[in-house]
Design a protein around this nucleic acid. Structure first.
Length: 212
DNA sequence: TACGTGATCACG
DNA sequence: GTGATCACGTAA
């Protein structure tokens, strides 16, 4: 989408869907709202000259004030990047196999994050299929472990700024409104007690690309 | 439903 | 040091 701005008496035209989200997007306080707003945005990577990307169709919010969050019990070696200023990635290894990609939000010392759970592939489908060892794009990014593998994200991305040229998030051209997504409880955090019931998982209604 | 997989965390 | 645990994915 092209957008025309009047700035200092001159018209400027910009291509909005190619715009990286600014750090200020991530540095706001309300992680639940940010998780909702990330729906429809486009997660992109560029490793070894291979660009891959996908539209975010499922997210989960984590706040350091509830038991589902890795940072609930304070800073550890694993979660320390969550305590940095928002706008960087938090990537950790889950079950010894899967690299899970999170967006760190909020200001420094407020350790909130959004887990990206599923994408609709956009660019570089061939590269994603090669990385996954499959011949079809079907469900190739429908889960947090799978999308990281498809986009080439591993723990070497931990703590990277999301305005970098390796990994970033673009505005996209989908505007996802409240009526376009559903909120459900988050997956796989039974240890969180009643915080596991918070409806902080968001997915785009009618998307074929959400996790199972 | 069952389990691979290895880093991490809390314990001492 | 050590053992239990784990924000998943696949096969069955």
């Amino acid at each position: 989408m092209f957008v025309c701005l009047l700035l200092s008496g001159k018209f400027i035209t910009i291509f909005v869907s190619d715009m990286k989200l600014p750090l200020s997007f991530y540095q706001r306080q309300n992680v639940v709202k940010i998780a909702q707003e990330l729906l429809g945005k486009v997660l992109c990577t560029n490793f070894d000259g291979s660009i891959t990307s996908g539209m975010i169709v499922e997210t989960e919010a984590y706040s350091d004030r509830e038991r589902g969050c890795h940072a609930f019990r304070g800073r550890t070696e694993r979660n320390k990047v969550m305590f940095e200023t928002g706008g960087i990635s938090y990537v950790y290894l889950c079950y010894g196999i899967h690299h899970l990609f999170n967006v760190v939000t909020n200001e420094k010392e407020k350790a909130d994050a959004v887990l990206i759970r599923a994408l609709q592939p956009m660019k570089g489908e061939e590269i994603m299929m090669e990385r996954m060892g499959v011949r079809s794009v079907k469900r190739i990014t429908s889960g947090p472990g799978k999308l990281s593998k498809a986009l080439g994200i591993d723990r070497s991305c931990n703590g990277k700024q999301l305005t970098s040229d390796d990994i970033w998030i673009e505005n996209g051209n989908q505007k996802i409104m409240k009526k376009d997504f559903v909120a459900r409880r988050r997956i796989g955090i039974d240890y969180a007690g009643r915080d596991a019931l918070l409806p902080w998982r968001f997915s785009i209604k009618s998307s074929d690309w959400v996790s199972r």
